[in-house]
Amino acid sequence: MTSDTLPYAVDAECPLKDSELAVLRKQYESEGAYVGVQTKFNYAWGLIKSTRRGDQQHGVRLLTEIFRDHVERRRECLYYLALGHYRLGNYAEARRYNEILLENEPANSQALSLRGLIDDKVAREGLLGVAIVSGVALAAGLVGSALWKGLARKR
């Protein structure tokens, strides 16, 4: 794959207008049971770009269907799936797909950048978690020490 064929994560971050998404949905629905892969993807991609979590989930679901049904599209679908899960915050899934893609294409720049992004996000959320946990611990400590001091004074 050349460098231009896959979107960078930034692309997934800018949502489409509602009217544009509606156009994609209409096209998708009009094709019914025999919907073409491109139409399906267009709608799925539009959904993933959305800021609403429900839309994103729907998009990932459609992408999963594409992945299952179209063997020849699987490789690129891995990346879209990884992006979709990344958007959803399912970093473990995102990483899983991305790593498989990187196994197949070690030099894929989009996948490499996504790997970095995922790692960052996980680290940040991890730190935040530590912060929360330690914050709780601190509060508990303060209360505990206050109690302790109170007890000590009583004694």
């Binding site: 915050g89 970093y91 473990a92 996980v122 680290a123 991890g126 935040l128 978690g129």
Partner: peptide
């Protein structure tokens, strides 16, 4: 290192 440490289970707490 901290990334590696914190992401050893490949999941963030929120997830």
């Amino acid at each position: 290192i901290q990334k590696r440490m914190l992401s050893f289970n490949h999941r963030s707490p929120g997830e």
